[in-house]
Amino acid sequence: MTEAITQIQSVTMERPFIKQLARLERWEKITVFAFVAPAMVLLLSLFVYPLIIFLLNSVFDPAFTIEHYVKAFTRPVYLRIFRITFEASLLTTIGALIIGYPVAYLFAHVSATTRGILLPLVLFPFWTSILVRMYAWMVLLGNDGVINQLLLKGDIISSPLPMLFNRFSVLVGMIHFMLPYMILTLYSVMAGIPKELTQAAASLGAPPYKQFFRVYLPWSMPGVGAGCLLVFILAVAFFVTPALLGGIRDTMISQVIQSEIEDALNWGFGAALSMLLMIVTTSLYLIYNRVMSIERIHGG
């Protein structure tokens, strides 16, 4: 601290007017806060405030009570629905990672022109309505769906394969939705890995698998962490996919919240489940922020 002061003093002594300029600049940097204000006002009034009002229902419906949280933890079915939600999200994350990693690797190692061609392929589903994609999967996987019709015509199977309205179709739909997020996150980190690294390892005589596991993989780990967290955060809150592609045993937590609000008219319990879900996603988001900043330090 004293060091800083002496530094400033020495500077001001050298150039007396700079003190004034510095103050002006500091003032200007605070005024830019005015640029952030409109968005803040919008978010506070129509996002944060409603959220608080809604979540307060979980302890004030109608008077102060913790019964809704007690119910969430004591009726086994809700813990089970949380488990199903986490399981499906975890499988989605792993699936997206396994499928996405090689593609991201390819992205990071082809010429810019090839990447320019490949990028829209990955981005395209990102830009297509989720409903269109879910409808497409219903059309593809149904009992009278495209895949079954083709397999039946080709005499490969004798009766339709049950592919829709079960865990399989939910996972397919969710992985399909999440892949672009995973690939882009992984790619953003892989692009920053110096090529010389693996070359150096190779010149030292490391066999390819060692080059990969000892050098490349550790360097890409921030991307893996960030990608997995992002996918998991988005997946636990999923509603459309399990509702459209899921079977009777694939109920996820968002569906229960929706039904509690709209059908059971039980705002208190709906809010309690929302709160629990929010706690999960928010803590993961905080971890994500840390991972990403570590990655930034790592990458540059």
Partner: peptide, 10 residues
């Protein structure tokens, strides 16, 4: 009954 229905479904 909705709680029980969900229990039965799963």
């Amino acid at each position: 009954m909705l709680d029980r229905w969900r229990e039965w479904k799963l």
